[in-house]
């Protein structure tokens, strides 16, 4: 397991908002199903003393930390306040901070991620679906019914595309150890390199599916940084240059970060790259055959 397990107490920032409330319900339904602790506290400034699905709400993260053992936080607050939430949690000493919020200005993210690093916290996201370790813990918004427990780690810059891949894996009988959505923004906390480093130390993870997209070169950096067996998929082969494809980070700029050059660099380094999502399960099975 990476980032957390059944014993991890989760705090939700933005607990009384529509999204926060909805996903506290789903996260705790999952925790109940797997026998985990789930969301133990919520935070919304000015709403301290309320309850959301039986979870106590506090005005500040520090107050919540006084009453609960908290190992991770999930942020559902609007874009204008999300970077502040990251910094509040880092300052309070929460080791893993998952930021679901989309549309945070890049400069806010850069500052918050730099501050979190100084405080010794890691940030997953922003603009991400969070993570899920089947049978252990769900931190975020991933649809748990598609997942099954196993030995394949998944790292992705996307949300629904990740669910598509997980669905294909599960249908093919390939379970997952932990699935991490690292986010679709240009600046994100944990990159492929960071998550792969955790997977390397995780006895449950034997192989990794890396799901990337156009923009930057974090996928290639990740693949170069590890000896783990990897299958990759890169979205955006047909994306035109200089157009943002939905994600703020999905853009080919100055002739860099296009899907074809990513794919050729990955292949050059011995990483098999699927040209369709539906090819991924068979390629993962091949990976295991090769290792035997």
């Amino acid at each position: 397991m990476i980032y957390g397990d059944k014993t991890t107490g989760v705090l939700v920032q933005g607990a009384t908002g529509k999204q926060g409330e909805f996903h506290i319900g789903l996260m705790n339904a999952y925790a109940k199903q797997v026998g985990g602790r789930g969301v133990v506290a919520g935070v919304t400034p000015g709403k301290g003393g309320q309850q959301v699905h039986g979870v106590p709400v506090y005005n500040t993260v520090r107050e919540a930390m006084r009453d609960h053992d908290i190992g991770a936080a999930v942020i559902f607050v609007p874009a204008g306040a999300a970077a502040d939430s990251i910094m509040e949690e880092a300052n309070a000493g929460i080791p893993t901070i998952v930021c679901i919020t989309e549309h945070i200005p890049v400069h806010d993210t850069m500052k918050a991620v730099a501050y979190a690093k100084v405080q010794g916290s890691v940030v997953i996201g922003p603009n991400c679906p969070g993570l899920l370790s089947p049978g252990e813990v769900k931190m975020g918004i991933m649809p748990a019914q598609l997942f099954s427990r196993g030995n394949v780690g998944v790292i992705s810059r996307s949300g629904t595309l990740t669910y598509e891949v997980v669905d294909e894996l599960t249908r093919a009988g390939i379970g997952q150890s932990t699935v991490v959505g690292i986010g679709g923004d240009p600046v994100i906390g944990q990159t492929f390199v960071d998550v792969l480093e955790r997977f390397e130390k995780d006895p449950e993870t034997k192989a990794v599916v890396l799901i990337g997209e156009v923009g930057g070169n974090l996928e290639e950096e990740g693949a170069d940084s590890t000896d783990m067996p990897i299958v990759a998929y890169i979205a955006g082969v047909s994306a035109p240059p200089d157009k943002r494809m939905g994600h703020a980070g999905a853009i080919v700029e100055g002739g860099e970060g296009d899907a074809r050059s990513k794919i050729s660099r990955l292949k050059k380094n011995g990483v098999p790259v699927a040209s369709r999502v539906s090819e991924i399960p068979a390629m993962v099975k091949d990976l295991f055959l090769c290792r035997c």
């Binding site: 992705s156 810059r157 996307s158 949300g159 629904t160 595309l161 990740t162 598509e164 679709g184 799901i211 997209e213 156009v214 979205a235 955006g236 082969v237 047909s238 994306a239 494809m245 939905g246 994600h247 999905a250 899907a259 040209s275 369709r276 999502v277």
Partner: peptide, 24 residues
């Protein structure tokens, strides 16, 4: 589509099968 990645992936699949997408 829903989600940037899945929608991009749908466009790529159109190209894979020899078609051309009108939009994302």
């Amino acid at each position: 589509g829903n989600g940037a990645g899945l929608t991009m992936s749908t466009l790529d699949l159109i190209e894979y099968y020899g078609g051309k997408a009108a939009n994302f």
